[in-house]
Design a protein around this nucleic acid. Structure first.
Lengths: 242, 242
DNA sequence: CTCATGACCAGATTTCGAAATTGGTCACGA
DNA sequence: TCGTGACCAATTTCGAAATCTGGTCATGAG
C-alpha cells in the first residue's frame, strides 16, 4: 500500500473516531507509519488532507453510482439513484459525518469543507438539474412542476432522510434497507411517472417501455456523472503539494 | 396585558434575539417591567419558563391547525396539514429555532426541551399514526406501504424541508409560499390517493367524493388534535409554580 | 394579610496570563 | 533524492481569580 493511501486511510479513521478537533498530524503520521514531514510531502495543509479524505469518500460513492447506472439503466431514476446514495451514505462513516453535517465529528471543518467544495457542489447541482430535464424528455419524470422546484423537492426530501438518520436512530424503522426503500418510494411518488403504485398491476409492455426510455436517458446522464467524477479527482489532486 | 404574558413574551423575544445562553432572568424581568422575583412567582425555573415559551408557540400552531381543519376538512390530508405547519414554522421565529434544532439560538436548551417534551412528542406520533390509519380507511391515503413506514416517510420528508430551510436559504426557491407548495406536492405524491397529478384532469365527481371522505375523516381526526392541544396546555401549566 | 421586589448567596461561567500543544518548516542524513 | 523529526511561531489549553447568574427569601408597600 502506497504511503499516500496509508496516510489518507489513517486520517479518515481518526477523523470518525476522534473528530477533527482532536486529530493531530503527529497521530496521523504515527498510525500511517511515516514521519510527520512525510504527510506534508503529500498534502499542502491539514485541511487539504481532510478535504482529500472527504473527496475520496464522495468519489467512491460517485463511482459506485455510475457503475450501478451502467449495469442497470433504471438506476438513473431519482428514486433508484438516491436510494443507492443513501445506502452508500449509511455504509461509510465519513459520508455519514459529511452529509449529516455532524458537528461532533467535523467541528469547524464542516464550514471549511462546505466553502472549499462549493464549486464542486454547484456543478453537482447542475448535473442533477440536467438529469431531471433529460428524464422528463424521456417521459420518466413528471412535468407537473418546474424543474428547479423538482430539484428542490429531491434535495429537501433526501436531506430529510439523511438528517433524521442521525436524529431519530431510535424510533426510526429499523433496517437500513427498509429506510432506503421508503426513500425510494417517496421520491418515486413525488417525481416519477413509471410503475405507478396507485394503478395496481404494472403491465408488462409499460415496464419494457420504461426500460427502453431509461436506457436512452442513461446514455445522456452517465457522462454527466463521469464528468463529476473527473472534477472530483481533479479537486482531490489540487489538495496535493504540486 | 397580564404580568405572566408579558414575561412569556419578553422571554420569547430575547430567546430568538440573543439565544438561550445569553438571556438572563434579570433581563427578562427588566423587559417585562417586573422584579426578578416575580418571574419565579410564575415559573418554577428558567428552563420551565423557556419550556413554556416553546409550548406556547407549538400550541398556537396546533390551534391554527385544528382551526384550518374545521374550516376545510381537506386540511386533514398530510400534504395540506404539513404545508400549514410549514407556514406556521416559517412565520414564528421560536418554532423555526425549535423545529430546526438551531444550536446558535437554543444551545443546550435544545437537549433539555427534547427530553422534557418527549412524552408530548410521543403522543404526537400516536396522533399522526392514527390520522394516517383513519385517512387510509377512508381511501384518502394509499395502502401500498406499512403505516409506520408511511409515518416515517412523512416525518423524514417534512424534516428535510424544515432543516434545509436554515441550511439552504440561499439557493432554495425564493418564496416561502412556493416551498410550502412543493412540500405539499411531494407529500401528496408520496402518500395520498386524491387529485392524482398524473391523470391530467380531476373530474368533478371524484373531487366531491374526496371531499365527503375528508369530512368523515376529519370528524375522527380533529378530536385527536384537540386532545393534543389539551395535553400541551396541561404541560404548559405544569411549568408554573403550583 | 397578600404579593411584588431586589439584596443576597452558592454555584456556575468568564477572564486572562502562563504553560502546553500543534500545524507547518527545513536542515540533516540515509 | 527523499523521508525525517527537532524546531518555531501561533494557537489552544489550563487554572485560579474575578465576575456573573439562577434561585431564595426577608422586607415593605398596599
Amino acid at each position: 500500500m502506497e504511503r499516500g493511501e496509508r496516510i489518507l486511510e489513517a486520517a479518515g479513521e481518526l477523523l470518525v473516531a476522534w473528530g477533527y478537533r482532536r486529530v493531530t498530524i503527529d497521530e496521523i503520521a504515527r498510525r500511517a507509519q511515516v514521519g510527520k514531514g512525510t504527510v506534508y510531502l503529500h498534502w499542502k495543509t491539514k485541511d487539504a488532507l481532510f478535504l482529500a479524505v472527504v473527496l475520496q469518500a464522495k468519489l467512491r460513492s460517485h463511482r459506485a453510482q455510475t457503475a450501478r447506472m451502467r449495469v442497470d439503466p433504471l438506476e438513473v431514476l431519482p428514486s433508484r439513484m438516491m436510494s443507492g446514495v443513501y445506502r452508500d451514505f449509511l455504509a461509510d462513516p465519513v459520508l455519514r459525518a459529511v452529509y449529516s453535517a455532524d458537528t461532533d465529528v467535523l467541528g469547524r471543518f464542516n464550514d471549511i469543507a462546505k466553502k472549499e467544495l462549493a464549486e464542486l457542489a454547484a456543478y453537482g447541482d447542475q448535473v442533477v438539474r440536467r438529469q431531471l430535464e433529460v428524464l422528463r424528455e424521456h417521459g420518466l419524470v413528471r412535468a407537473d412542476m418546474d424543474v428547479v422546484q423538482q430539484q428542490y423537492a429531491l434535495l429537501a426530501t433526501a436531506s430529510g432522510f439523511f438528517l433524521t438518520e442521525a436524529l431519530l436512530h431510535d424510533r426510526a424503522p429499523h433496517a437500513a434497507e427498509e429506510r432506503a426503500h421508503i426513500l425510494a418510494h417517496t421520491l418515486r411518488g413525488a417525481l416519477e411517472t413509471s410503475a405507478d403504485p396507485r394503478s395496481g398491476t404494472g403491465t408488462e409492455p409499460a415496464a419494457a417501455r420504461t426500460r427502453a426510455a431509461a436506457e436512452a436517458a442513461a446514455s445522456e446522464i452517465i457522462p454527466l456523472y463521469e464528468r463529476l467524477e473527473e472534477l472530483s479527482e481533479q479537486e482531490m489532486r489540487r489538495q496535493l503539494r504540486h
